[in-house]
Design a protein around this nucleic acid. Structure first.
Lengths: 197, 197
DNA sequence: GTCTATATTAAGATAGAC
DNA sequence: GTCTATCTTAATATAGAC
């Protein structure tokens, strides 16, 4: 065979994600992706029927992971302990492979994703996640606190990129703030806690 | 005169900002802006020499406001009290006119802004702001906490847009979390506080 | 599965009349 | 100050040979 099975498709996804997350979706042309891979644009169209299809391919990977994470949260008792335990799992899930790039791409390319159905799916998943984490009857402030606890893990390290510290220190600082936010009980949880004492 | 002085230029800025912040910079064509105004593209080019120049015009407004806010912070004693007082001023500054749209545009169009010098200026201003608010010797977690206290005011209300609550309740929830984050003293501030007791 | 060549389209931008 | 008309460019996408 002329090449290892499925390899080219994966390499296109990887290079595209790298460029899309670094430069932006609209700022990256298929020509650029093709050149980086040492092929022509036409080759890309053999593997994907459009530019948007490439996005769909790697965002779907992340949507699948989120579905699993959401199921895990649902299987746990609601509350601050589950939220803080979740953040450890979530951090691990973005630190492997290209998941962190996917989240950065998702954050920074909302206008482009608005017209894609995969963007809508991703957005809904993130909202679902916050919903199950905070609990359906959480007040708005608690929902925000929960949403930002997750958000800090993506955006925090990036925000600290100009400080003279290591990646590991950035991740650690983000995790510390995330835990602080997630550990805060909602009013509903406080009432429940008081009732069982 | 055929029209009220400077009016058209301002109307272009307004319409462009509205479309750029709702749909994205790349997703909005000059044709669309012109149509909305009831003129042709050529008319836009009489007032602005490029699409990017329109962005520069309204982002510069915000950069100027930020400079003033930063000066105010510098004039105050550093610490949690100044940070919380600042957030009130900051919230007021984005609630007037189109400043909130400018910040949304800034957040959601980072890839497009990356190649514009006005984007760089804006980014630097925001980093300066966090620097003076948190204090130069703040640890990474405190810097993050401070950065997110400001960020919550932009992003928080937008994140809660699907909850069945009013705009006012959204703003209030965002402010509450922002104050919680900004009110937290940094380790350096805690030491200084202990020393003066 | 990848190439060359090309179709198609729409954007940003300009020239010059009025 | 705004128009019509046009230029220029570069992108996504496709046809068909190899």
């Amino acid at each position: 065979m002329t090449e290892r099975t499925g390899d080219t498709r994966e390499r296109i996804k990887e290079v595209a994600l790298e460029l899309f997350s670094e430069q932006g979706y609209e700022q990256t042309s298929l020509r650029e992706i093709a050149e980086r891979l040492g092929v022509t644009k036409a080759a890309l169209y053999y593997h994907f029927k459009s530019k948007e299809e490439i996005v769909r391919a790697f965002v779907e990977d992340r949507v699948g992971q989120l579905a699993e994470l959401i199921e895990w949260v649902k299987s746990q008792p609601p509350g601050p302990q589950t939220r803080t335990a979740f953040l450890q799992r979530y951090a691990a899930s973005i630190d492997i492979g290209k998941q962190h790039s996917i989240m950065r791409f998702f954050q920074e390319n909302q206008p482009a994703l608005k017209s894609m159905e995969i963007g809508e799916r991703m957005r809904e998943r993130m909202l679902d996640l916050v919903e199950v984490l905070a609990g359906p009857d959480a007040d708005p402030v608690s929902k925000l606190r929960t949403a930002f606890s997750v958000f800090v893990l993506h955006g925090g390290p990036f925000l600290l990129r100009d400080s003279g510290i290591t990646d590991e220190q950035r991740r650690s600082a983000a995790m510390q703030l995330a835990l602080e936010l997630a550990g805060h009980p909602t009013p509903a949880e406080q009432r429940a806690e008081g009732a069982t004492r």
